[in-house]
Design a protein around this nucleic acid. Structure first.
Lengths: 199, 199
DNA sequence: AGGGTATTTGACACGACGTCAAGAATGTGT
DNA sequence: ACACATTCTTGACGTCGTGTCAAATACCCT
């Protein structure tokens, strides 16, 4: 066996950085190869295809991101936890300059189920999986809050409400790029869920 | 002058149908040309570029969609109007088989601000414009409801809350394809905004 | 009828994805 | 120590998509 001349994880990191900044369709394997100091053909040999490379890079990101979220949601009052959740969400897709947006949301729209290529069903599942896990995390947080008397509604219903808001924030970020607006919506949503509504 | 051999609007309709089903990046001008019975070069001559063609087709869609929305939001109690709004939203991106999703959300992620090409700022503006107009429409609906005593909160704040939810629904539609879930979230959001929260 | 003008048409350049065969470098068995 | 098998690397190739250009074409107008 001939050994690899590059580090598998390094390539994954370089690749995801590009995918995040320029989108999957907007990033060519030549770009990644140049940036990683690897020949394009080696990428095909090691990962199989552009989509497979993206998926591996994305799974890495998703696992890391979940850990960060989990840590941030583990302390403080329920309000503080929800606040931290939204803050992390917004900070995540306002990172970089220009802001890189939400890779999950963007990926879903770029690679999700398409007519013809039945291939990207696997991609859809990867994105859906991260969203599901985040939903579960938020729901657990709400449940814990309910047990401590900080919340008196249905954790499942509330989580099912919070998640689409965060997905919507990702869309609005890209449409308007107005971080203050995002934070306003986030804080308003927390108020609504916790019971200090628009009334 | 030599007259056009095809109908400008026909091409726009055919093009948007393809863009909607397969995404902008996933639709080639050859596809559109074949489907419209036009030579590819003629499209470049008439519209300039793929993105310009998409933008014209999208503006047509946006104008039509706004009219439909406006009509649907014009009658009934506030609750009925909001319900009609969400229903139309969901029905819109559950249309077709497989469901075509939300062209605005997908377009934003496919064509929004990207590193390098400063060109698609125009596209971003088109998407943002539709979202803004829908926001204004919802806000007006809430204001009218407030005057009639059906709502006692801030129309601006409530609209700013409802819109990201609809954007989030577009994302979840693509991630899970579960229409029942979307409708559940919608009805829950109405309850929250109108004051029957999770409490 | 004829000239000007815009449209059509096909060829071309370029870049991207993906495949393939041939070359190169290492571990392994004798 | 040497040869072999196995994997990685490298460059060439095919295909498809975007966009440009010049030549051919068909119509309107005078």
């Amino acid at each position: 066996m001939r050994p690899r001349e590059f580090d598998h994880d390094d390539v994954l990191r370089v690749a995801f950085d590009q995918f995040w900044r320029k989108g999957v369709r907007g990033t060519s394997l030549s770009d990644i190869a140049r940036d990683a100091g690897v020949q394009r053909g080696s990428l095909y040999n090691a990962f199989g295809s552009k989509e497979a490379l993206f998926l591996q890079a994305y799974e890495r990101y998703a696992a890391d991101y979940l850990l960060v979220l989990q840590k941030a949601l583990g302390a403080g009052s329920l309000r503080k936890r929800l606040s931290a959740f939204f803050d992390l969400t917004i900070t995540n897709f306002r990172s970089g300059s220009p802001p890189r947006g939400c890779p999950t949301t963007r990926g879903l729209m770029e690679l999700g189920p398409a007519e013809g290529d039945g291939l990207d069903e696997e991609a859809r599942q990867a994105f859906a999986s991260l969203i599901s896990r985040i939903t579960a995390l938020v729901q657990d947080t709400l449940s814990a809050g309910a047990e401590r008397g900080e919340f008196s509604g249905s954790p499942a219903a509330a989580a099912l409400h919070i998640i689409p808001v965060t997905r919507g924030l990702a869309v609005l970020e890209r449409a308007f790029g107005d971080e203050a607006q995002l934070r306003k919506i986030a804080s308003h949503t927390i108020d609504l869920v916790l019971g200090k509504g628009t009334r």
